[in-house]
Structures are given as structure tokens and as C-alpha cells.
């Protein structure tokens, strides 16, 4: 019996040595072959290669009309064909095993206890633990503040009233996009104009204004602004007081035709302002009226600012109602 076992062991070893491998049990299950699927996979992969080469050809030759479409079809097609090949491989050529395994242990109480112990015991030489912890916290906190302090060089955060600057002041002429001074006679009814302060930077939130001409009788301006609208021409900041978009719509598209009163409308969130009533908010989310720019007409018929806006320009912030607009011509 012992001898037989001995013999079979050596026989096994001999066969193993001859065939070059130990006899191991299969890990991956066996399955049937499927030559048709294999051919299909080869076909898909070759087609994928053709598409990929097609992409290179389109790139190299270059001057096709609709080049982007061909590029997309070639490169996307190549990837998709390869994807199909892989899905076919996983469906038809690879055994779909169902394996089972236990979920990992939910917790390791022994290690938890040990970690706690290590941390606890390593602090046993301290006699003033709280004091040391406090000192570390103080140093760490201070260092943290020091580390983010250079961020102050990002912007003038300490004096936010720069937000109230505007380039407008009494006497400033209103000019068009091209820099030509606007005449009162240029301003027609039923439409609106964008104007800028003459000789000032235009990439400033307080620079652009909208101008509309209304029937002087239709004006409902506050008493203090009686003289702000010569000939019924009114000017307002073009920047919405809600979120800073440009007020690019005049009465459209929010109002149905049955509501004929003109209104200035921001296309971002449809804040709607009444130009006849000093920029009062009619609808939409804006929390402040639209700042009005007082106008006057000089002896040459040109439109000029008669002062600064009725309030700060742009979206609200904590200090927006604390100071008026500050003239700062850059």
C-alpha cells in the first residue's frame, strides 16, 4: 500500500515533468467553443482598424467639406466597433461564471482596540496634555491663517466700496459704440440705444447705459428727478441690479402685446424695469431699481450726463445701499 502511493507520486511527477506543467485544477469554468463568434469578433476588429486608418487619412488630406463629421464618424466608429467586439467576446467567447464570496468582515475589534491602545499609551509621558494640545492648536491655526493670508493679493477685498465706482460725472458726453457723440435728435421712439461715457474705459460695469425716448407726458419720475429727462429721453445703467447681466431686451419677449407699456428687460432672469418710473422693478428677481443717469442737452444738441447715477450700479452686496455711486474716472 505504501509502495503503491510512493509509485503513483513519482509517476505523477514524471508526467508533470514531461508535459511541462503540474496538474492543476481549472479555476475558470470550461465552456463550449464558438468559432462563428470568433470570426465575427475578428471582422469587427478589422473594420475598426479600417475606420481608425480612415481617421488618419481624413486628417492628412485635410481639405474636405464637412471634415469634422467624417472625423467623428471615423474615430467614433472605430471605437464603437471595438466596443462591439469586446461585448461579443464577453457574451460569446468567455465563460460567464457566477462566483460567490463572503463580504469582508464588517469590523476588526481586535485591531481597533490595539490602535486605540497604541495612541493612548504613546501619550503617557505628557503631564499637561491639554496645554500641549492647546499650544499645537494655536500654532496650527496661526500657521493656517498665515498660509492663506497671501490670497489678499488676489484683489482689493479690504475696500469693497470700489464696487460703487462709476466713470460718470456732470458734463460727460454720451457716445455710441463707435465713439460718436449722441445727439438728442438721434434718439427715436420705440427703440433703445446703448451709450458709453466719452473718453472713459468701457470694460467697466458702470460704463454702459441704455437710452430710450418716451412721451414726456407718460413719465412718472420721482419729483426730485423732474429735470433728468429732457424731451422725455431717459438713461439707465445697462447692467441689471439682480445678477449683473446686460439689459438687452426692450419690452420683449416677456410682455404680451396687450401690455403696451415699455419696459427694460434682462434676458438672464427677466428682471423687468419701468423706464417711465425711474427704473422701478416691475417683475422678476431684481431687488433694487435700475440706477438712472440724469441727462441734459448741451447747446450743440449733444446728450450729456447731468450728474452721477441715482444709485450704485450692478448687483447688490452688503454695502450697496451705504454709499452712493462714486465718480472715479479711469
Amino acid at each position: 500500500m505504501r509502495r503503491l502511493r510512493f509509485l503513483s507520486f513519482w509517476l505523477g511527477a514524471l508526467i508533470g515533468a514531461l508535459t511541462g506543467r503540474g496538474r492543476r485544477k481549472r479555476i475558470v469554468e470550461e465552456g463550449s467553443e464558438s468559432p462563428g463568434a470568433e470570426l465575427a469578433v475578428v471582422g469587427l476588429l478589422l473594420l475598426s482598424a479600417v475606420f481608425a486608418i480612415g481617421f488618419v487619412v481624413v486628417l492628412a488630406t485635410g481639405s474636405w467639406p464637412n471634415r469634422t463629421q467624417y472625423e467623428g464618424i471615423a474615430l467614433g466608429g472605430s471605437l464603437l466597433l471595438m466596443a462591439f467586439a469586446l461585448i461579443l467576446v464577453s457574451k460569446k467567447l468567455i465563460v460567464t461564471e457566477q462566483n460567490e464570496e463572503d463580504y469582508p468582515e464588517p469590523e476588526h475589534p481586535e485591531e481597533q482596540a490595539e490602535v486605540t491602545q497604541i495612541v493612548r499609551e504613546s501619550g503617557s509621558r505628557f503631564t499637561r496634555k491639554r496645554l500641549v494640545k492647546g499650544a499645537f492648536a494655536a500654532a496650527g491655526g496661526a500657521l493656517g491663517v498665515a498660509a492663506i493670508a497671501p490670497a489678499i493679493s488676489f484683489g482689493p477685498a479690504l475696500d469693497p466700496f470700489e464696487l460703487n465706482w462709476t466713470p460718470w460725472k456732470r458734463g460727460k458726453r454720451l457716445v455710441t459704440e463707435d465713439g460718436a457723440p449722441l445727439k438728442a435728435s438721434d434718439i427715436e421712439m420705440e427703440t433703445f440705444y446703448t451709450a458709453y461715457p466719452e473718453h472713459s474705459a468701457r470694460d467697466n460695469i458702470a460704463a454702459p447705459v441704455v437710452i430710450v425716448r418716451l412721451q414726456p407726458r407718460a413719465l412718472k419720475l420721482p419729483r426730485s428727478r423732474r429735470n433728468w429727462a429732457p424731451q422725455g429721453i431717459v438713461a439707465y445703467s445697462k447692467i441689471c441690479t439682480h445678477a449683473g447681466c446686460a439689459i438687452a431686451l426692450y419690452r420683449k419677449p416677456t410682455f404680451p402685446p396687450v401690455q403696451p407699456d415699455p419696459a427694460l428687460v434682462c434676458p438672464c432672469h427677466y428682471s423687468t424695469f419701468d423706464p417711465a418710473a425711474g427704473g422701478k422693478v416691475l417683475f422678476g428677481p431684481a431687488g433694487r431699481n435700475l440706477p438712472q443717469l440724469p441727462l441734459m442737452i448741451d447747446s450743440a444738441g449733444h446728450l450729456r450726463a447731468a450728474g452721477n447715477f441715482s444709485g450704485p450700479v450692478g448687483p447688490s452686496w452688503w454695502g450697496v445701499r451705504m454709499k452712493g455711486p462714486i465718480t472715479q474716472d479711469r
Partner: peptide, 29 residues
């Protein structure tokens, strides 16, 4: 337009909005 709205929202944060927006944008919009 998207940035203008982002700026408006940054400005709107209570207590810190004005300062924060200037810090992020480096200057008024």
C-alpha cells in the same frame, strides 16, 4: 453672461460677498 451671474451670486453672500467677489475677480466686474 454666465460669469456676470456668478459674480452677482458671489456678491450676494451675506456679510462677505462684496469682499469675496473682489478677491475672486481681482477688481469690480
Amino acid at each position: 453672461m454666465g460669469l456676470a451671474i456668478g459674480y452677482g451670486v458671489a456678491l450676494s453672500l451675506p456679510f462677505v460677498g462684496g469682499n469675496l467677489a473682489l478677491l475672486i475677480w481681482g477688481a469690480p466686474y
